[in-house]
Design a protein around this nucleic acid. Structure first.
Length: 499
RNA sequence: GCUCCCUUCGUCUAGCGGUCCAGGACGCGGCCCUCUCAAGGCUGAAACAUGGGUUCGAUUCCCAUAGGGAGCGCCA
């Protein structure tokens, strides 16, 4: 029933019936096993927009208990690279989007494309075109000059004899009249006039299939039921349907997702910040936070903001996807990441945190347990890299004294109190935050100071700066030895510069 | 130029004809909490692009206009 296309769909009723309902019906046919795919071209890193597309495709398959295929569209031999394929696989693995089939490379399937091309030539649904690029360019230029649309005029359609010395391309003999309807789960039925669609190239003169041809043959061969991709492909879709029809192959249901724009509304690019998924890993974002952010771009489930992977799978419905483009908002991503850091499992976070410390060449030996650091900092770190930077003083010796902080808080007047603190700490039996808090409170009271009046100089002394977790927690993390040493250092500093 | 898509607070969105002088979230302002920074709680400002229809009634349906976006390659 999916093979019904132009003929039936254009018969008139599709504009009157609420099309999304009609299509949904087809898409949820229980007899059909859902199969989706993500088909990036390996011409660079895995883009954040690509991840969103992959996510929706993956979610749709998982939600319906279907299959998800990863296909590498590497027919552009000039620009495709092995490194890009690696980057895509690494990126997918990092965000945890797993596939059931593939990765299939189109370059492995050339024999199949040739076979299909041959059959089209025999059937007359495609023909050889011997036009040179120069000829085509001239033709288009002339059309534009005349105020017409640039399109191939079909001059080789009825050609019989080959042109000596020219290797031809293969072109689709497209209908030219009538119309096609793209059945789309997010846009509804979108009709296109065939007159606006020219004879596109299926196979290049070097025998390599073009994007449109490869996509169509692959999707059909792999039994893809739902093509979920960016809506920059929407106007390409009628042409792909023509190929499918020429082949007598079933037409899938489409879902063209709105694009992700940069914060300024322009197409998302490097100048907006990170667009490569792996850069987010480097910056200390959690994959689940990134996915949570991405799924909310164009999709919502009431007022819910936080979704576990399982909830996303259970709740996701392509019918709830918005048709309008969304802007990428780094602040909200940051907020989400913080939410995930706040709620995450301490041991698991500690594991990822370790990688960021290592990346900054911070050795953890002699420092506090990482899980304890995570607990102390989870409410004040937006990313794991923030955490690594902010907690550096817990691991690295010596700790640099912030000049301004020292000037403000390490004054001669506070020296006696710090001295008493040092004695008190030395006499302490345990080194738990409760004992430490009490010690600081007692000394402060004895010196006639408020807790904060002593706490802040102490903080500067043991961390080098004015910002850290609560002072008792900080002391506990810094540890007995290092606290003693740093207090002594601070006292020496006051003696030397204090006057 | 032609074709197609899109249009609710600054941003992401809820809303599927009356429940909306429009709800939530990020961000922003204020207050509270407080040893710093955060986190948290309370609170405030902030939107249905415009014009026509349809209807007893439009944010919701239809049509224009305007403004965004995409496509029109031997790129994908």
């Amino acid at each position: 029933m999916l093979s019904q296309t132009a003929g039936a769909a254009t018969s008139g009723h599709s504009r009157l019936v609420p099309s999304r309902i009609a299509i949904l019906f087809a898409a949820t046919d229980p007899a059909m096993t859902v199969k989706t795919r993500f088909a990036p071209s390996p011409t660079g890193y895995l883009h954040i927009g690509g991840v969103r597309t992959a996510l929706f495709s993956w979610l749709y398959a998982r939600h319906h208990g279907g299959r998800f295929v990863l296909r590498i569209e590497d027919t552009d031999r000039e620009r495709s690279t092995e490194e890009s394929i690696e980057a895509i696989l690494t990126g997918m693995a990092w965000v945890g989007l797993d596939w059931d089939e593939g990765p299939v490379r189109q370059t492995e399937r050339f024999a199949r494309y040739a076979e299909v091309a041959e059959s089209m030539l025999r059937a007359g649904t495609a023909y050889r075109c011997y036009c040179s690029r120069e000829e085509l360019d001239a033709m288009r230029a002339a059309q534009v000059a005349r105020g017409e649309n640039p399109r191939y005029d079909g001059r080789c359609r009825e050609r019989r004899a080959p042109v000596p010395g020219v290797s031809p391309v293969l072109r689709l003999r497209s209908p030219g009249t009538g119309s096609v309807v793209v059945r789309d789960l997010v846009h509804g039925d979108v009709p296109f006039d065939n007159a606006g669609l020219d004879d596109l190239i299926l196979v290049r003169s070097d025998g390599v299939p073009t994007f449109h041809f490869g996509v169509v043959v692959d999707d059909a061969d792999m039994g893809i039921t739902h093509v979920i991709r960016g809506d920059d492909h929407l106007t390409n879709t009628p042409r792909q349907i023509h190929i499918l029809q020429a082949l007598g192959m079933p037409v899938p249901v489409y879902a063209h997702l709105p694009m992700i724009l940069g914060p300024d509304g322009a197409r998302l690019s490097k100048r907006h910040g990170a667009v490569n998924v792996l850069e987010y890993r480097e910056q200390g974002y959690l994959p689940e936070a990134l996915l949570n952010y991405l799924v909310r771009l164009g999709w919502a489930h009431g007022d819910q903001e936080l979704f576990t992977r399982e909830e996303m799978i259970r709740l996701f419905d392509i019918a709830d996807v918005n048709a309008a483009a969304a802007r990428f908002n780094p602040e909200k991503l940051a907020w989400l990441n913080q939410q995930y850091i706040q709620r995450g499992d301490r041991e698991q976070l500690a594991g990822q945190f370790a990688a960021h410390l290592a990346r900054r060449a911070i050795a953890v030996q002699g420092g506090p347990p990482l899980a304890a650091v995570v607990d102390a900092y989870r409410e004040r770190a937006v990313t794991l890299d923030d955490l690594a930077q902010a907690s550096r003083y817990l691991f690295v010796e010596p700790v640099p004294l912030d000049e301004k902080a020292a000037r403000q808080h390490l004054k001669p007047a506070i020296a006696p109190a710090l001295e008493r603190l040092r004695e008190r700490f030395a006499a302490l039996g345990g080194w738990q935050r409760q004992d430490l808090h009490e010690a600081v409170a007692t000394v402060a009271a004895d010196c006639g100071l408020g807790f904060g009046k002593l706490g802040q100089p102490l903080r500067v002394a043991i961390t080098g700066g004015t910002v850290s977790p609560p002072i008792d927690v900080t002391l506990e993390l810094v540890g007995r030895e290092r606290t003693a040493a740093r207090l002594a250092q601070a006292l020496a500093h006051i003696a030397a510069y204090g006057a």
